[in-house]
Design a protein around this nucleic acid. Structure first.
Length: 264
DNA sequence: ATGGTCGGTGTCCGA
């Protein structure tokens, strides 16, 4: 059975409900993983989402910051949110589909501006978060479960995942220390980057463009911060990818665009 | 080298 999964840092699910409905109609994903929903669970806008056919939901939200959600047309089991770094800051939900595939949706800490964990607690948090989830996946290695990992990982690992490798080497999201830790996370279960599976590493690829550029499209100073990974047993089922760049030009756009992957 | 813009909330913080 085919599965289309989408990940999107929506930057407020309430403000961008019309865009979420547009994504559903245009792309017909089976599963949508959202980050930065920025809403408490009792205020989550279930009604329009259910009406669009996404009747299965797993959410973990808080006031003002962070927040993740999995919206699905397929049934799943939800074991509740997981907590990392001794914080309940709504950065991860995972569910298990009926065929046993586990879907993990992460919002990894952005890490602030200064790429030094000694001087910047936010960067220290980002590095610790990466180490903790790596340890978690290493601990479940060998359990035979098929897994998908998606989300705003807030790291652009490859040279051509950023507009200028040289100019971003000291910029949080592309520094060697976090790229190295993302590589260790990727090694934990041998995760396959489902988008780069189809697009050569020599080709520029972005999923985020800053709000601060006068003309995001003309300057095109993007970064690929949003990812879809699958465990090696799922790699043969990969059928396609879409980074929905036009969504950056939608009215009242998020600064991130949806990333979609098709599995057979 | 600098500052630029968003969203949610509250008169700033985090991205």
């Amino acid at each position: 059975m085919a599965l289309r999964i989408a990940t999107w840092n929506i930057n407020s699910v309430r403000l961008r409900m019309p865009l979420l409905l547009r994504l559903m109609q245009e792309q017909q994903p089976d599963i949508i993983c959202l980050q930065e929903t920025k809403v408490e669970d009792d205020k989550f806008p279930f009604e329009p989402i259910r009406a669009a056919g996404y009747v299965h939901t797993a959410i973990a939200g808080m006031k003002s910051y962070n927040g993740v959600a999995i919206l699905s047309r397929r049934p799943f089991a939800f074991e509740g949110p997981r907590h990392w770094c001794d914080k309940e800051d709504c950065r991860h939900v995972s569910v298990t589909l009926e065929d046993g595939t586990e879907v993990n949706n992460f919002y990894i800490p952005a890490g602030g501006d200064i790429p030094d964990p000694e001087k910047n607690d936010k960067f220290a948090h980002k590095l610790r978060f990466l180490r903790e989830i790596t340890g978690w996946f290493e601990s479940v290695k060998g359990d035979g479960k098929r897994r998908v990992l998606v989300g705003d990982l807030n790291i652009a690992p490859l040279e051509h995942d950023v507009w200028s490798h040289k100019q971003l080497l000291d910029v949080v999201s592309h520094t060697p220390v976090e790229v190295d830790l993302l590589g260790k996370l990727q090694s934990s279960l041998g995760w396959v980057d489902a988008v780069r599976h189809f697009v050569p590493e020599t080709e520029k690829l972005y999923s985020w463009w800053s709000y601060r550029a006068k003309d995001w499209e003309a300057s095109d100073r993007g970064r690929r911060l949003d990812h879809v990974w699958v465990t090696p047993d799922l790699a043969p089922t990969l059928a396609g990818q879409t980074i929905l760049k036009p969504a950056r030009g939608w009215e009242k756009a998020s600064d991130h665009v949806p990333v979609l992957v098709d599995l057979n």
